[in-house]
Nucleic acid binder design. Sequence first.
DNA 1: TTGAAAGCGTTACCAA
DNA 2: TTGGTAACGCTTTCAA
Lengths: 348, 348
Amino acid sequence: MNLKQLSESLGLSQTTVSRALNGYPEVREATRLRVLAAAQAANYTPNVKARHLATGRAMAIGHVMPLTGREELVNPIFADFIAGAGEVYASEGYDMLLSMVSVEGAEAAYRQMASNASVDGVMVQAPTMDDPRIPLLQGLGLPFVVHGRTGSPEGYSWLDVANIRAFRRATEFLLDLGHRKIALVNGQETLDFARRRRLGYEQALAARGITPNPAWMRTDIMTEQFGYRSAVEMLEADDRPTAFLAASIIPAIGIRQAAGERGLRLGRDVSVICHDDGLSYIGNEGIRTPEGPAFTATRSSIRAAGKRCAEILLRLIDDPTQPPIQELWETDLTLGRSTGPAPAPASA
Amino acid sequence: MNLKQLSESLGLSQTTVSRALNGYPEVREATRLRVLAAAQAANYTPNVKARHLATGRAMAIGHVMPLTGREELVNPIFADFIAGAGEVYASEGYDMLLSMVSVEGAEAAYRQMASNASVDGVMVQAPTMDDPRIPLLQGLGLPFVVHGRTGSPEGYSWLDVANIRAFRRATEFLLDLGHRKIALVNGQETLDFARRRRLGYEQALAARGITPNPAWMRTDIMTEQFGYRSAVEMLEADDRPTAFLAASIIPAIGIRQAAGERGLRLGRDVSVICHDDGLSYIGNEGIRTPEGPAFTATRSSIRAAGKRCAEILLRLIDDPTQPPIQELWETDLTLGRSTGPAPAPASA
DNA sequence: TTGAAAGCGTTACCAA
DNA sequence: TTGGTAACGCTTTCAA
């Protein structure tokens, strides 16, 4: 059943039926009701491809997920973000077009999306300090929103967490517990957030007159293995940290594993706090270290960020002339709600 | 630049240009080369929506990801599978349409995909024993492939791992190490794979004359918290298991956490083996328990399964008349490569 | 080997 | 408030 058949069966023109179905005001109410009833009865659904061709809108948002060789498997953070965004898209009638490509193929993917207008906008995740995607998308004229920031976060829409503050507070929290040997297992510093997280960590240490130990600061692609190896090296050295601050749940899992294998009990012998914690997957209740919920942000907040980014993007698509929207989110840091006893730092 | 403009600039008809571009044989080679060069120079890309409207093919595959209330966050297994499938789609020129919906909304999502032909086929993940999606999709006439099986796995295409064998072998492995108190932390038994995994576990125990202890068999939605709670309960009981078999990396993370918090060292005081292991995310090298790589399948194999499922689906779309393709995969079980000493079971 | 023209199923402009 | 008709950009059938 298509529009033509439906309109013939009603003795109306396609135009009128189309207008009635799409809620245009210039249709008599009685006519609209008649059309709606007939459409329902005939189980009519408009052909989206024809609609796209006629309107020039794709009613779809592109997500490009670059797969590097080293991070062979997908970071669950991406999935959570996408889940949040997908909810919003669905509720607004948008499709989500997911493109899994190699890092090198990402540019081509964006170009293709732009050239054949298969999407109305794109979402950009995990930007680097000087991400080439931003000028590319600006040049292509494709509306986009960035989750995170580049080194020069002006002139485009983004949403980010206050990374410096989050890691300063997390470090202060560990310091307040008596820790003096705190390791930072960070992402690559080509990523803006990694740089900011290090800054927060350094600021907190500096405020207490502590000089960061370079041996306790690691930076690499955030894999479990990276976390595991880093922790093994640090824990097997003579002078070992009593606490770890990890930039993500992924390396934190490796750190916890390394600690466990060495007979170190979490929250007693060693403390691990990480950003985007996923322990548990059902949020932040239920599983915690003795000093309280130990994270600077949860995977749930990633999902919320996905929702908000999608909202911003859809608004941008509706009105491309509006100025960029930029939101800095405070993390839902609940570290202050410590319930357990402070661990006795190994060195103190 | 569209086809009309391109053809005018060449002094050819749209027909000829279209044929040249799409590799039809009835075009003189010289003409084809001329067209190709012009298209390249003009940076011409066909409008996919117009093509879709004309051909009736969407060149897209639908993935529906039902989000339940309880599993608030996305299972990384889904993401790995999608990554594998996405690779294949991209290489064959297909888009991936991802629909994140509530469990109740899944049926509507499939119906919509079918009614407006926005996809050429769909992928079905995590089928239940008596999954309503199979008859639904058969009724809709939408080609589909299932990752996993239902209770009656006939009449449709699927790919699955040999779950019974995998868990029988994993259980035997633990038995060979001297374990006699082995817990099974399984998924919900409405899922076919959970039932099969339990069967494998029971078969291996029965072969050694061991009666399964109901207190050590848990089944629920596979969250970290479920794994954590189950392990806490079992480990704090008087008679506690010396080894855990988990149906997925997700509950296994919770189990490891619970063990670590109680001062139990993995691979010495307690052994944890799980399916679809993700420790580490970069495959199965690097991180292992003392008795060797401890998993019955890796997340890498999930990605490989995604690739293969995509290949099967695309083949099915090309020729809808061909009989169902069904593949049972042996897991890449490498448990036999034990390198460390067997743990002394607490009770033996 | 090439081209004209008829779809594909909508939406949107202009008249009535 | 309604309708006729021209896009939208491609593929495909039929003729030449």
